[in-house]
Design a protein around this nucleic acid. Structure first.
Lengths: 242, 242
DNA sequence: CGGGCCGTTGAGCGGGCTCAAGACATGTGG
DNA sequence: CCACATGTCTTGAGCCCGCTCAACGGCCCG
């Protein structure tokens, strides 16, 4: 029998999407899973691969990304502890994008079939996962708006705001500041910019006394102005607290 | 009792995502719904609104979009007959984006609660809708990659390819050409460009003998080259035929 | 026939890119 | 302890894709 602790954050996150009964929770905790410790840059899924597991992040961070034929890479979202990060690739058959660890961390692998069976037997769990996927979709849309219609400064500010709120919600950070284990190159791939311009944009935000960036962490000096510059409204994250 | 014909394309689309039994189909056909004829530019849902219905498009086209505080608009996806276009807003409470008709057409409105009840009672229908939302998510991601990492010519070509394939799948067009009821301004909002640059980009594609654009339709002269220039691979659409 | 809406074209500008180089860490082996 | 490699961050200079501003033409419809 597997331990029930590892999936705790995942189940709690689902329970925030849709009310779950005790028996729904039990069914989720009973999901068979294997925990593996992944290193920075390890892939959880590769594009074109037949995904056989759903991955739940227990610690660390992962990104979804895909590249054009010419190698230009776009990061679509960042995931953190408690996120079930591969419901998409695994349910749809062949993966259409990559999922890669941003830093070392533990990941639980759950066989796809087990997810299918639980969601078939326990309708509330299916609705919870569906709703969770809908929130993921909302985040993708906001990301598109960010990349398509905001300038570099605004884009960066928006993304920093999103992380602050999501980390806060997951109990992993605060709106005053947080660990952000991304290199400038990774930030560039997330924002549709070049590394060089990310560097200048971060400097510009620091010069405006909005943030202080030290090695791999961010301190937010003026949340209100950062949110205005980033045109940030947390509605699309669909948090209860909002 | 409502007619069962209107939802036919919608149910068939769901059945392509996940095998449905006859009883699952019956439950879906029995969904209460009201059919309304909408005009061009009518809103199906507005941002910030409490969405009380799911909208299924019966004819015509609709877009999802959202604007920044400064009025710059981004279109996230185009929807066509058979698409259940508002599962997201309605299940998540307050809408985080707008859905608007691109041209006149009929739309079936299904109360949210009815969807909740059917998906709770019939697990396969819940999985089907979930998988459909996952495909929507894949389309959003590709859109982000398009806007973030491809130049104007490639972006336009990619979008034209996506429409061709999706219209073909929905039985509404062909890869040789199709009706595209979008103005250049709407294309611009979809691609993260300006109207003027869209005009020049379309001209550039025509000059390369890749397409011919007449009023509101597109003829594709050289699919193979268009797909190469657009860096298009239909994998992310997760069609069976692929 | 006049007023929107939409498409078209030109001229000039600028945000972000490209190319190039150097600074500063961290790790590894000798 | 140093020598060296590798990855990341920083800075400068110049250029180009796509934007802005401006104007005009075609079409539909009242």
């Amino acid at each position: 029998m597997t331990q029930s602790i590892p999936l705790h954050a995942f189940v709690e996150k689902l329970a925030r999407r849709r009310v779950l009964s005790d028996r729904d929770r039990e069914a989720l905790f009973a999901l068979p899973h294997v925990v593996k410790t992944m290193r920075r840059h390890d892939y959880l899924v590769r594009e074109e691969e037949e995904a056989k597991n759903c991955c739940v992040i227990l610690s660390g961070f992962a990104v979804r990304h895909k590249a054009t034929r010419y190698g230009a890479r776009q990061i679509f979202s960042i995931h953190m502890a408690g996120d079930g990060v591969d419901l998409s690739n695994s349910q749809l058959g062949k993966a259409d994008h990559n999922i890669q660890m941003l830093c070392a961390g533990d990941v639980a692998f759950i066989p796809v079939d087990a997810i299918r069976e639980v969601t078939f037997a326990w309708p509330a769990t299916c609705q919870a996962m569906w709703y969770d996927s809908l929130v993921d979709g909302a985040i993708f849309r906001e990301w598109t708006l960010n990349v398509g219609r905001r300038d570099a400064l605004s884009r960066m500010a928006h993304m920093l705001c999103e992380f602050a709120i999501r980390l806060d919600e997951a109990g992993l950070g605060a709106t005053q500041g947080y660990e952000l284990p991304m290199t400038q190159e990774e930030l560039a791939d997330a924002l549709g910019l070049t590394t060089i311009h990310v560097n200048r944009t971060l400097k510009a935000l620091a010069k405006e006394k909005l943030i202080v960036r030290t090695s791999r962490s961010v301190e937010i000096l003026d949340w209100a102005r950062l949110a205005i510059i980033g045109d940030f409204d947390s509605g699309y994250l669909h948090l209860e607290s909002a």
